[in-house]
Design a protein around this nucleic acid. Structure first.
Length: 571
RNA sequence: CGGGGUGUAGCUCAGCCUGGUAGAGCACUUGGUUCGGGACCAAGGGGCCGCAGGUUCAAAUCCUGUCACCCCGACCA
């Protein structure tokens, strides 16, 4: 490809509203342009990268036994009413009407459509197990899109769905997909981790996320350095605490006139936050619930949301509700002496404390030497907190570290959630109608582009992992317009490289060398060849890898073998 | 949805407070010089000052409304 025929669209200045490295570099390199909030055009350069990822994903999906199809991006309301998600999916669903005023949505995911296809086309157990996938543009009307294509509203996703007669078959395919995902992200040259995950609204029991490790990631993941344990912090557990010691101190009331926060109370009383119990009062339909946590721990809302008491929704109690229920303002409430109608659910770590400090349910007062059972009613113990760095791993092997990641893949076992709702049935060997089990497997194709850049860039621009690079080789003939000799030599080399099977971008613009170098480094081409009258006279070509500190001269006649040793021929 | 902010040339922004012929840098076009790390000189093209109302002799500037976008939060296979 010649730069004169390939619009590079690079920009020198940093766009004002780009906050992360990948967003900034994708705009500067001319890969994407914003059309509206969370909606981007893919310019030619960006599209080449996107296609490279799609190719790897497609190859690995096929190798894993999945078959490609393509479903519509626009889906009728009726299908979503069958699954019950027209209402449940909420504002994420972009709804629209056609000329007949029929309602549709722009598909945020395709469980409904795939179930409709399978129930119409698949009749017999002989056709199962079946795994279908597509690479499609989806739309989720995120409340706050940000970071460019990392959290866009419109995005490209690979989604696969598998159908099974029994759990063993689902387990087997799930494992095949898990392995395929690991191979995909490895092939793409990304540093990633597979972690146990919450299955969220998709539903189901078993679920893993594939997280690309990056400081700017929106997810926190916990993993043990001495075992395989790795989980999203939404879900991660610590090993249970040791059993509660017996009470040793008497319950004592202390005046804490202005100490409303854990930090203030601990400083005032000279005890660590891990000796305190903080109490959160939640409003649920028809009542209140108290959740108790150790002072140094945070409530994990995903875990709390699974409590039976909170199934019908919850919010934090208002200041007025707290006062009415406990007689004290927030900051002074505690589990001791709460009225009987309020269930007291303590996190395992809080429940393991003896002689703790907590609010006295009286303005300006705390208690010391408080103890469960003796002083405070305990309805139930549950795992309610988020793990923190240094917690013991749940398998007892090693301590947990917390890192940040970008979720690029997510696999689920859904059981019969969708097939049941959508009335998918297949006849088994006995001629009996069975509801198949399903798995679903997503990869954020466009998000991977951003994730790869987050992991691979420097102050000059992007540094593409080889398999993602829009071009393999940048060929820069310097000041070619002034030298016919150089023009001829460049043309010959360009043709040679193409014939050898390389993906080459030759810069034939009448630019000074500086801007040429800068552009190629910005767009991250992994290998650079420079031709000049000087090198022509010396019979050499200058080579520099994108990560190399210094260029090197290679004899012209040795160039092809030199490249063969360094890079793969593209297909 | 709550809070904050911004809409002026392709991009980054000044001008607005205190109303009076719309600006700079970068980018673009042409000519010249230069040219192995984002050159220089000269000449040029480019604007419904987000949109709609209002006040005024006169509005980018003041007032009202509206739309879009950005940031923080809630939200998020």
């Amino acid at each position: 490809m010649l730069t004169s025929r390939f619009p590079l669209c690079t920009i020198k200045e940093t766009p004002a509203d780009a906050d992360t490295a990948s967003h900034r570099l994708m705009l500067r390199a001319g890969m994407i342009r914003k059309l509206a909030a969370g909606i981007y055009s893919w310019l030619p350069l960006g599209l080449r990268v996107l296609r490279r990822i799609e190719t790897v994903v497609r190859e690995e999906m096929q190798r894993a036994g999945a078959t490609e199809l393509l479903m519509p991006s626009v889906q009728p309301k009726e299908l979503w009413e069958e699954s019950g998600r027209w209402g449940k999916y909420g504002h994420l669903l972009l709804r629209m009407q056609d000329r007949k005023e029929q309602w549709y949505c722009y598909g945020p995911t395709h469980e409904e459509v795939i179930c409709d296809i399978v129930r119409n086309e698949i009749r017999s157990y002989k056709q199962l197990p079946l795994t279908l996938f597509q690479i499609q543009t989806k739309f989720r009307d995120e409340i706050r899109p940000r970071f460019g294509v990392m959290r866009a509203r419109e995005f490209v996703m690979k989604d696969a769905y598998s159908f099974h007669l029994d759990q063993a078959s689902l387990d087997a395919t799930y494992q095949v997909m898990y392995d395929a995902y690991a191979r995909i992200f490895t092939r793409l040259g990304l540093e990633f981790r597979a972690v146990q995950a919450d299955s969220g609204d998709i539903g189901g029991d078993i679920s893993h996320e594939f997280q690309v490790l990056a400081e700017s990631g929106e997810d926190a993941i916990a993993f043990s350095e001495q075992s395989d344990y790795a989980a999203n912090v939404e879900l991660a557990e610590a090993a249970p605490p040791p059993p509660r010691p017996a009470p040793a101190q008497p319950l004592k009331r202390v005046a804490t006139p202005t100490q409303k926060t854990i930090a203030a109370v601990t400083a005032f009383l000279g005890v660590g936050p891990q000796r305190c119990v903080k109490t959160l009062l939640l409003r649920i339909p028809g009542g209140l619930v108290a959740l108790c946590l150790r002072g140094d721990h945070e409530l994990n809302e995903v875990k709390a949301g699974k409590l039976p008491e909170l199934q019908k929704g919850w919010t934090l109690a208002s200041e007025a509700e707290v006062l009415a229920a406990t007689g004290a303002p927030a900051g002074f409430i505690g589990p001791v002496g709460l009225r009987d109608s309020i269930a007291v659910i303590a996190d395992r770590s809080a429940a393991a404390l003896a002689d703790f400090v907590c609010g006295a349910n009286k303005d300006g007062t705390h208690l010391t030497g408080a103890n469960w059972e003796r002083d405070a009613r305990l309805t139930r113990v549950a795992d309610l907190r988020s793990v923190v760095d240094g917690d013991l791993a749940p398998d007892g092997k090693g301590r947990l570290k917390i890192a940040r990641g970008i979720e690029v893949g997510h696999i689920f076992q859904n059981g019969c959630k969708y097939t049941e709702a959508m009335h998918v049935g297949v006849l088994d060997e006995q001629g009996k109608l069975q509801t198949p089990l399903t798995g679903c497997y997503g990869i954020g194709v466009s998000r991977i582009v951003a994730a790869a850049i987050e992991q691979n860039h420097d102050e000059r621009g992007i540094i593409w992992p080889e398999p993602l690079a829009p071009f393999q080789i940048a060929l820069l003939p310097l000041n070619m317009h002034k030298s016919e000799k150089l023009q001829a030599a460049a043309q010959v080399l360009y043709q040679e490289l193409i014939t050898a099977g390389y993906d080459v971008l030759m810069d034939d613009r009448e630019l000074r060398p500086g801007p040429m170098f800068a552009d190629m480094e910005l767009i991250g081409i992994p290998h650079r060849l420079v031709l000049s009258d000087r090198s022509l006279d010396a019979g050499t070509v200058e080579y520099k890898g994108r990560r190399d500190a210094q260029p090197q001269d290679v004899a012209r006649r040795d160039l092809l073998p030199f490249l063969t040793a360094r890079l793969q021929v593209s297909t």
